Amino acid sequence: MDDLERELRDLATWLETPDVPDVRDRVRARLSAPARRRRWRRWLAAALAALLVAALPPGRAAIADAVAGLLRFSGVVVETTPASDPPTGAPSPLPSQRSVSLDEARRHVRFPIRVPAALGAPEQVLVADPDGTGTYRVATLLYRGGALRLDAFDGRLDPVFHKQLGGGPGVEWVTVDGDFAVWIGGPHELAYIDRAGVERVETARLAAATLIWEDAGVSYRLEGQLTRDAAIGIAGSLD
């Protein structure tokens, strides 16, 4: 057994995973289709991993992290830690957070802000953590009085959110529009990581169930009192 296979088998005991889907035909179809700006290498890596064990994260670096109890996916760091007391008190908002119109938010971020058709127009829009040019790093759409939120950000390079599971909910690999996503099915600690890579502990709070996915270079984090299937349905309705 080589090192990669051993890491994959170790990871299977760390994650709570669904039954392994047969993705071979779907991967072959994608590879034979005309070239598109898709993450085909991620599909290939994930397909190979699925043939060995359960539905696993793409890329060997992610596998090594997950074996160590740490997972990085689409700008979010998910860490398993010993159970501890959840954050108390009102958390601080994200750095320089302010409320804006949807049109204004779209002018002040470097990525498209898409609205899920399943939810309609947001009740409130927030932007946070600007750089020196006034370009914001995170945009948040709020629904249901703020109980349901959709964060959008460019998570391809630096981590943006840090989640600590603390022995509570498990991580489940699912798909959104055919691409891999992460589902965390219960409350967990959440903190923000700023542009300098510093975790803002004052922003730490207890987050609800969350779906994390990426589309066209933009990372999304949908959080609220939702079932897994409802969250996937909302994610698949981005317009």
Rank of each mutant, 00 (worst) to 15 (best):
M1W: 12
D2C: 08
E5N: 09
E5F: 03
E7Q: 12
R9I: 08
T17P: 00
P18S: 04
P18C: 00
P18V: 00
V20R: 15
L31D: 03
S32E: 15
S32R: 15
R37D: 06
R39G: 11
R41Q: 13
R41D: 13
A46P: 04
A47T: 05
A54S: 06
L56G: 00
P57N: 01
R72T: 04
G75H: 05
T80R: 09
T81I: 09
G89D: 07
P93S: 09
S96W: 15
S99N: 11
A105N: 10
A105R: 13
R110T: 12
V115L: 13
V115K: 12
P116I: 02
P116W: 05
L126R: 14
D131T: 07
G134I: 04
T135K: 03
T135W: 06
V138H: 14
V138M: 14
Y143W: 14
D154A: 11
D158R: 15
H162E: 03
K163G: 03
V171T: 02
V171N: 02
E172V: 10
W173L: 15
P187Q: 08
E189P: 00
A191N: 02
D194G: 01
D194W: 04
D194R: 08
E199S: 11
E202S: 09
A207I: 01
T210C: 12
A216N: 13
R228S: 02
A235R: 05
